[in-house]
Design a binder for these strands. Structure first.
Lengths: 333, 333
DNA sequence: GCAAAACAGCGAAACGTTACGCGTTTGTTC
DNA sequence: GAACAAACGCGTAACGTTTCGCTGTTTTGC
């Protein structure tokens, strides 16, 4: 059906080798170049990437596995990673792990089977085991947002501990003493943010009663329930830090439905300035990650690994965060 | 590097043809079957989909183009379409049009170049021109959510006119007379919903002053500005219908930031029950689309077209919507 | 001018599958 | 036990590229 280089050979009288050379940017005699170009226009020829892939062993395709595609965080990631890859002629195969380790492992196998040249992933699992098949096949992997201790994969994330630390500082500086935290223990990210938070509290000699410490899963529901419990305490905290997007939302919901007002009765601080944060009232103070830059770095890392497959120690990029002001934190006298 | 069927031939002594037959589910003598299976285990053999694709002309890959991946609507669509496809062994290549017709046209070319077997798309453009290359190459296309008048593509969407009509009715039944609408004129969907709304208003003999009719683009900003303008009118509407997710959010923002209260000062009704709607206060009354079912149908349509490429008239599936109660509409005695 | 070097082009062999048409074996029936 | 059908297996030719090693032909530098 579609034209092949054989058809071009027929029209131009040149050999397959020469035509292929032209297609790949090699030098060809000007008159031959013209012949080929005319023929390509005439036949509407387009390179068959499948056939090319078979011999070059390259598919110009990258796989992306996100922990949960319904999270807006994932949407933003996919957009930017996709954009940057497109500029390099790569396509993006998207898989959703639905926060499930088994699905995640399956996704890796699926993508490898599709012969992707690299995998960008926001992992669900704590351990790197499920990535072994990729390592085995020498398919480069770049972790985003989350990572595991002591593995040999490139990784792009924020300095989670510093982010937690600064968020706590922000609240403390504004006079808060009874500060609660809602964090996720499901992934590395959550723990680090928690540790940073704890560090700042300890430094100031502030105690963190057990009931102020809501460590659980990474869901809207958990944020919601946790905030409800915090609001129900006889000694309510004056401020709450939510260390991820989902719990931030859940917590806002709970406050909005309660009899309490933010920031008058309770101050709140969230994570990740995705669009939804603008729409909730009050406007949340938050820690924001440089999403676009992270994606750019991740794409850069995966492409260098693909193009220079030398053995080098893994690179871990830790990006800074910024604090965005809002009106959800009330300064206490 | 990786094992091929030639390696299996060497181990089993069988021919390539027999092994291929086995791999594709053909009948093989039990003893040979065992030999092959043992060899596959031994060599960790996996079919090379690229090579298979070259001869079968099938890539087991579908392309999905969304009008804007940062919209949560798109996220949900991608998730479900991806899920359903996965069950059939298909992978999903995702492209983002960023609400830009030029990028959209480019996406189609890109996907065709990647040899996808079909394209599922929520189009930005009003005209089908940019899909011509797909039609030309006999690559099936299924439109989702939005469509164009009189084209020959399968399409899955809701009955937008009925949805607009029912939403208006809901408000009218609760005593509202001065009802405004915020809709998008950018895509078909928005117009249809507007028409349904207008029809219900006309039937009840209710007038729709020009300043109650905010027809514009499909963005949070537009929803925000429109609501601000409506609230600033000397004769404010008692209720506002927002006909898509983005404008619903923007409108909620505007009300939240204003001096007015919903539903006491103004009633609101939105579209699309995505997660964000739970988090905003008040809980919005809304028209909800059967997202998952729509995706299932879309995948079904694209797969039938792929597997039975007979010429048949295009199928347009119009799904029903449901009204979800909230507390953003105040009954006026 | 002449050897050496650089350049263009070519044929043929990959890459790892599936598809086709034809033998060979096996089993059934009269 | 002959005849025939069904089941199974095989060799080989695709699929549409790239790549390798080779042959001529031009350019370069002294």
């Amino acid at each position: 059906m579609a034209a092949t280089i054989r058809d071009i050979r027929k029209q131009t009288g040149l050999s397959l080798a020469t035509i292929s050379k032209y297609l790949n940017g090699g030098n060809v005699l000007p008159e031959n170049r013209e012949k080929i170009e005319a023929s390509i226009r005439d036949l509407h020829y387009e390179v068959n990437e499948i056939a090319r892939g078979l011999v070059t062993n390259r598919t110009k395709t990258i796989g992306m596995i996100v922990y949960d595609i319904e999270s807006m965080f994932s949407g933003v990631l996919i957009r930017h990673v996709g954009d940057f890859l497109r500029k390099e002629g790569y396509a993006l195969l998207v898989c959703d792990s639905c926060n499930d380790e088994a699905i995640e492992a399956d996704n890796v196998r699926f993508l490898l089977n599709k012969k992707v040249e690299g995998i960008v992933i926001t992992p669900v699992s704590w351990k790197a085991d499920f990535l072994l098949p990729a390592q085995h096949k020498n398919v480069p992997v770049v972790l985003m947002d989350r990572s595991f201790a002591g593995t040999d994969f490139d990784c792009v994330k924020i300095d989670n501990r510093a982010a937690g630390y600064r968020a706590a500082q922000y609240l403390i500086k504004r006079g808060h003493r009874r500060i609660a935290i809602i964090a996720s223990s499901v992934e590395y990210t959550g723990w680090e943010r928690y540790k940073g938070f704890k560090e700042a509290m300890d430094e100031q000699g502030l105690s963190l009663p057990e009931e102020y410490c809501r460590i659980g899963v990474h869901t809207i529901e958990f944020g919601y329930e946790s905030m409800q419990k915090l609001l129900g305490l006889s000694e309510r905290p004056t401020a709450v830090l939510m260390t991820n997007y989902e719990t931030s939302l859940g917590a806002v919901m709970a406050v909005n439905e309660s009899e309490y007002d933010c920031p008058d009765d309770i101050s709140m601080m969230g994570f990740d300035d995705l669009i939804m944060s603008h729409v909730v009232k009050p406007k949340l103070c938050m820690v924001v990650q440089p999403m676009k830059e992270m994606c750019e770095k991740a794409v850069g890392l995966i492409l260098t690994q693909i193009n220079n497959p030398e053995d080098r120690p893994p690179i871990e990029l830790s990006m800074g965060t910024t604090l965005r002001d809002g009106n959800s934190v009330k300064p206490l006298q």
